[in-house]
């Protein structure tokens, strides 16, 4: 029987984890037969590189800043060895390039993917999220894109402190005054480029939804979760599935309104008077996507089936009150392995 070769990124299971490892785990747990997982890594210390029970082989790929052509060439070289069937990118910052080459991956190499189109990807960008939310009747905190600190300072005084300072792709900090905001502005613009986003702070409980859209407006699966414990990096260390029909409905509205294709994470703040504010729509599975699997919905498996053109019906049931508790684990790695990935680019 033919193996199904699935390549995925996001093997950085660190304190601010990428979703690659949980996605790989989900694919192994599902009903797919003869799965071979090929890891795609940017850094030589991404923990997934060294998880040989989960990831069959890993390859280094060029950073997103190298451009889509470099990515395509590298994937082609890996494909020549591994005959990739499906690729699942799991980083926000790399998606643009993957979306750009997805047609070529399919037509020239026969590699399937299941990604949002350019328009739906753009409409949920942080800088225009508020505008989009308004169209769909979803509340979004006031967010302003700033291209210079002088512009940011002006916006910040209009929004009032404290406020959130957010990078174009990742990272968010709370600034309590202009000095802090300036420091974050420069830090974030150096790391992720312009604009830097300033966002009004909405107080309440953080609730998130991991979901899968079919690209025509349908929602294949959605599981809501409340973070029970949050690390100092703002990441969930433990969480629990919720029964919250209103939240699910808002999530379905967002999936439908964006014709979302692929996995995504919707981050909300539920205020004390039960209002839901959409903070962000992340264009890939969250690192806690395995909670969905554990409560009855295997979104990564469904994504692979959709990518291969199979029809997948919507999953509506999940177990409420299922928890995840994350843990860290020290893998023991031989220097030979580190040497190998460094000198050969694969492991």
């Amino acid at each position: 029987m033919k193996t199904l070769n699935i390549a995925l990124t996001g093997l950085n299971n660190i304190d601010s984890p990428g979703p690659g490892v949980p996605v790989a785990r989900a694919l192994r747990a599902g009903g797919l037969k003869h799965v071979r997982i090929i890891g795609l890594a940017y850094d030589n210390l991404e923990p997934g590189l060294y998880m040989h029970d989960l990831i069959d082989r890993s390859y280094q790929i060029p950073y997103p800043s190298a451009g889509s052509e470099a990515l395509f060439n590298r994937l082609k070289a890996i494909h020549d060895i591994e005959a990739i069937d499906v690729v699942i990118p799991n980083f926000d910052a790399e998606l643009h390039n993957f979306m750009r080459i997805s047609d070529r991956l399919k037509s020239e190499l026969g590699i399937h993917s299941f990604l949002p189109d350019h328009d739906s990807f753009e409409m949920r960008q942080k800088s225009v999220l508020a505008e989009w939310g308004e169209k769909l009747g979803i509340k979004v905190p006031t967010t302003k894109p700033a291209f210079s600190w002088s512009e940011a300072r002006q916006m910040a005084s209009e929004l009032g402190y404290p406020l959130m300072v957010k990078g174009k792709y990742y990272d968010a900090f709370t600034a309590h005054d202009a000095d802090q905001a300036a420091a974050y502005f420069y830090k974030l613009s150096a790391k992720w480029g312009l604009p830097v986003l300033l966002q009004q702070i909405v107080k309440g409980t953080e609730v998130n939804v991991t979901a899968l859209g079919d690209g025509t407006g349908g929602c294949i699966g959605a599981v809501p979760m409340r973070k029970m414990y949050i690390t100092d990096k703002g990441k969930a260390w433990a969480g629990i599935t919720l029964q919250d029909d209103r939240l699910l409905e808002i999530a379905r509205t967002a999936i439908n309104g964006s014709r979302w294709r692929g996995g995504c994470e919707l981050e909300f703040i539920k205020t004390h008077d039960d209002q839901y504010y959409l903070i962000e729509m992340n264009p890939r599975f969250p690192a806690w996507v395995y909670l969905a699997v554990g409560s009855g919905q295997n979104h990564p498996e469904a994504l692979v089936r959709l990518a291969l053109g199979e029809s997948v019906g919507p999953m509506t049931r999940y177990e409420v009150g299922k928890m995840f508790v994350r843990y860290s684990y020290d893998q023991i790695v031989d220097l030979k392995e580190y040497e190998h990935i460094n000198t050969h680019g694969w492991l």
Partner: peptide, 13 residues
């Protein structure tokens, strides 16, 4: 090799 910083496979354009 700087831990975390990728090598030639990562940075070459």
């Amino acid at each position: 090799y700087n831990p975390g910083i990728t090598n030639k496979f990562g940075s070459r354009v």
